[in-house]
């Protein structure tokens, strides 16, 4: 199977994570922000798989399963929140929904 330096896999995960992070900071649309969060979660999962593959153990994969579970729950709640925000404000602009300022 694959034989490659460990850094390549980890750096790929880092780059994907950074991309998702950049998108999260730049985008103002709530749906896009949620997509960016998904990208970041996926990148974190990739890092786990790479690390697990380094030692040939199943633990990394198990962590990825947990991340998947969490992502599913998070998306369900997040999308429900987005829906109710949209119904209340008729917009998906995260900056408009800023009543919770101190």
């Amino acid at each position: 199977m694959l034989t490659a330096p460990l850094e390549y896999g980890l750096f790929l995960a880092a780059m994907l994570f950074t991309m998702g992070f950049l998108g999260l900071l730049v985008r103002r649309n709530l749906i896009f922000m949620l997509i960016c969060v998904e990208v970041m979660l996926n990148a974190a999962g990739l890092a786990f798989i790479v690390a697990g593959a380094r030692w040939g153990q199943p633990d990394g994969q198990i962590m990825m399963i947990f991340i998947l579970t969490m992502a599913a729950a998070e998306v369900a709640v997040g999308l429900a929140l987005i829906l109710s925000i949209y119904r209340r404000t008729k917009t998906l602009d995260a900056d408009v929904v800023s009543q919770m300022h101190g």
């Binding site: 199977m1 694959l2 034989t3 490659a4 330096p5 460990l6 850094e7 896999g9 980890l10 750096f11 880092a14 780059m15 994570f17 950074t18 991309m19 992070f21 950049l22 900071l25 790479v50 697990g52 593959a53 380094r54 040939g56 153990q57 199943p58 994969q61």
Partner: peptide, 28 residues
Amino acid sequence: GVMAALLLAVLGTAIFQGNPGILDTRVV
């Protein structure tokens, strides 16, 4: 952008520091 670059730099440093080793995968 600055923040993301910083993040990538820090993560990159963390990854390439030392000698992480070679992936010699087997199927789990």
